[in-house]
């Protein structure tokens, strides 16, 4: 009976010792523990062990192991980078983990826009000097069609073909502003002069 009671006391005291620190013990707890420890070497040893563990494991007693200085620096740098992620980029970063700050994305889009504009402008220069390759092929095809559908033209010289080809090109270039002149040219061509 007394052994059973002793075991119950041990369980209770060990629970107290393991679960809470001495500062959190009530007066009743302290009295109960003190009385039990007088009789129980096992619990006494457990309590002593715990106090040694707590003392030895305290980081302050081991100053030789310290965080490296660059850890703090890197973390602060990371925080500043994160701070720059504002607006939509910040939301995107939270949602999808994107790392591109808003201003970098804006610069990238601007560069892309300028590049496309330059390429288009270059194409425009080519077009004003003459004609784009696809249109050239198209007009040449028109010339050949005309040659095929007009038997008397088939026998004409290469110079004659070039004249027709050029006239088609000229017509396409001047179509919008010089409609009347083109009609005159058409009539001249039709008359076979």
């Amino acid at each position: 009976m007394s052994t059973h009671s002793q075991k119950d006391d041990c369980t209770k005291v060990q629970d107290l010792i393991l679960q809470t620190t001495e500062q959190n013990w009530t007066d009743t707890d302290k009295r109960c523990i003190a009385e039990h420890l007088k009789e129980c070497a096992s619990c006494q040893y457990l309590l002593q062990s715990i106090s040694v563990f707590e003392q030895e494991l305290d980081p302050e007693t081991h100053p030789e192991t310290k965080p490296l200085p660059h850890i703090r620096v890197n973390a602060i740098r990371h925080m500043k980078r994160k701070k720059n992620c504002t607006g939509n980029a910040g939301i995107l970063q939270r949602l999808f983990g994107w790392k591109v700050p808003a201003y970098q994305a804006a610069v990238a889009f601007f560069i892309l826009f300028v590049s496309i504009s330059i390429i288009n402008a270059h194409k425009g220069v080519v077009r004003t000097e003459g004609i784009s390759a696809s249109k050239w092929i198209s007009y040449r095809q028109q010339s050949r069609d005309y040659e095929a559908t007009t038997p008397e033209y088939a026998d004409s010289s290469q110079i004659g073909r070039n004249v027709l080809e050029d006239s088609l090109l000229f017509r396409s270039l001047m179509q919008s502003d010089y409609r009347h002149e083109i009609q005159k040219i058409d009539s001249v061509l039709a008359s076979g002069v």
Binding site: P59, E60, T65, K66, P67, R72, I76, M79, K82
Partner: peptide, 27 residues
């Protein structure tokens, strides 16, 4: 405050916990 990218707040938390965390990891 850290959630709002306050570096001073981070510094203070780092001062309080870095050593404890390091020892926890170390062990």
């Amino acid at each position: 405050r850290i959630a709002q990218s306050d570096t001073l707040a981070f510094d203070e938390i780092y001062r309080r916990y870095s050593n404890r965390l390091l020892h926890y990891f170390y062990r």
